[in-house]
């Protein structure tokens, strides 16, 4: 880490500490009701004493499992459909309008139909998360496939590469940066819809944890839950970004 980076990190730490300290100070000043606006320390300590650690870990695990399931489905289907509709002109002509009709419908608007189709169990939650991941992956991958520099395809064609091999060896690698972007956006949206998905008659998960806490007016647990979901999102997104950099960073800048 060079000096400039170290400087930046130090400034960032100062900024973060300042904001947390200000929040703590306001909460403890007596100007606001700590039951409604708890200090961060109070919220975290309170939540950790009221909720057994096993329960918290369980909530995190079940939420992450739902996200991974929905995301994996959405990413796989999104990439496959993007490749097919981006590369095969006729297929693309047929499918594109259908996608254009469905894509603007927000994932959460599917919740009622998800309940009708899949009931109140796990599948409907996974379905909503799936929708969150599917469309961003699809649109980004589609852009990647159709945006491949034509000269690269021509170069491959002069080397007798055509058909499926052209798709696998040139188009997909060239579209990878866009696919990676889609995966990150899709992952973020999976987290974004998590809470709503867990509103569907859930008895577990981080979304349930905070909605449940509201019933008891336990703002400390709500704040803790918000921070916990944010931290999980941040950490996993960071991991995903690292993977992508490992995977594409050698030839693709940023």
């Amino acid at each position: 880490m060079n000096a400039a980076r170290r400087n930046e990190a130090a400034l960032g730490a100062v900024g973060a500490v300042a904001v947390v300290a200000a929040w703590e100070a306001v909460a403890r000043s007596g100007l606001v009701d700590p039951a409604i606006f708890p200090a961060p320390s109070a919220a975290i300590v309170g939540a950790l004493t009221r909720l057994p650690p096993g329960e918290i870990a369980g909530s995190v695990a079940i939420s992450l499992l739902r996200i991974v399931e929905g995301f994996a489905l959405g990413a796989a289907l999104g990439i496959a459909l993007a490749l097919a509709s981006g590369w095969y002109r006729i297929f693309g002509n047929l499918v594109r309008p259908l996608v254009e009709v469905l894509r603007p419908i927000p994932p959460l608007a599917w919740i009622p139909m998800a309940i009708v189709w899949f009931g109140l169990g796990e599948p409907s939650k996974v379905f909503v998360i799936f929708l969150g991941a599917f469309f961003p992956v699809l649109t980004n991958a589609y852009r990647g496939v159709t945006g491949v520099d034509p000269v690269l395809i021509r170069a491959a064609q002069t080397m007798d590469i055509g058909g499926l091999r052209l798709l696998v060896r040139v188009v997909i690698p060239a579209a990878m940066p866009d696919i990676a972007t889609g995966l990150r956006v899709g992952w973020g949206l999976s987290f974004g819809v998590l809470v709503a998905a867990e509103l569907i008659a859930a008895e577990s998960g981080m979304g349930f944890m905070i909605m449940n806490a509201r019933q008891f007016g336990d703002v400390g647990v709500i704040v803790f839950g918000i921070l916990l979901i944010g931290a999980c999102n941040l950490a996993t997104d960071w991991g995903l970004a690292l993977l992508i950099r490992r995977w594409l960073g050698r030839w693709h800048s940023v």
């Binding site: 904001v19 987290f191 979304g207 941040l234």
Partner: peptide, 18 residues
């Protein structure tokens, strides 16, 4: 930067109960 990054990671819908 770190604050913005974290605030953006906070799922908006998780703020619903709060």
């Amino acid at each position: 930067a770190p604050l913005v990054t974290f605030a953006r990671s906070v799922a908006t819908l998780s703020l619903l109960p709060l």
